[in-house]
Computed example of a mutant assay.
Amino acid sequence: MSTALLDARRPVLADLVPARVFRGAAVRDAALIVGASAFVGLAAQISVPVPGSPVPVTGQTFAVLLAGSALGAWRGLAAMVLYLGLGAAGMPWFAEGTSGTGFPTLGYVFGMVLAATAAGFLARRGTDRSPLRTAGTMLLGNAVIYAAGLTYLAHDLGISMSQAYEIGMRNYLFGDAVKIVLAMALLPSAWKLVGRRG
């Protein structure tokens, strides 16, 4: 990655939402954070059980990475901390309407906190403006989610990492590829729609 890309500080999509509509930037940011948390919670309910695995196929990871990219790092982090905190406290908006902390897929949610932050950090440097850079951001985000998710899954179930891979990642890669292709279309198209490239 070039030094110019690392040093660049560009707007993210959330920055284009006028603060005056919400009577100030703080209220706007709070509304975006709450809205992103709810978006992830709704996407998590798009859930298909996978036989032999505690990990369902959901729309959750797609929503997390889109939200992180659109919000930027700190708002993405705040949205996912809110999502995790409320879900742990009893809000039934984890996958399959679950809540609390006593389930083997909790590590994926921890990974989503980190992935949203990373996606937002990279989007602030313009990686959501082109399809290929968007794909790179989504791949990195998915890798972070899987790293945390599989590690926790293996520990919680008392299985090896290779077994965790078999039940918690291998069967999901095609779906992840589809989500990445969708993101490659959506994020750059959003920037073209608003007419802001810089």
Rank of each mutant, 00 (worst) to 15 (best):
T117L: 13
A73Q: 14
N142E: 14
F121I: 05
G136Y: 01
A115P: 07
A135G: 10
A78F: 01
F110I: 00
T105F: 09
A116K: 11
G97F: 08
L150H: 02
G87E: 08
V178S: 09
I145W: 06
L86I: 11
L82W: 06
L114V: 15
G111W: 08
G102A: 05
G102P: 10
A116M: 00
N142F: 04
I159K: 03
T105N: 10
T58L: 11
A78T: 10
L114Y: 10
A143S: 13
W93D: 01
M169Q: 00
A95N: 07
L132G: 12
L122T: 13
L140I: 12
T101Q: 00
R133D: 08
A79S: 00
Y83L: 03
W93A: 06
R133H: 14
V144R: 10
G111F: 13
G85H: 01
F94H: 04
A118P: 08
L77Y: 01
V109F: 05
P56R: 12
W93V: 10
T105D: 02
G76M: 02
D156P: 14
G120K: 13
S99D: 04
V144M: 06
R124H: 03
A70C: 15
P104D: 00
R129C: 13
R125Y: 05
M161S: 15
G107Q: 04
R170Y: 13
T127H: 00
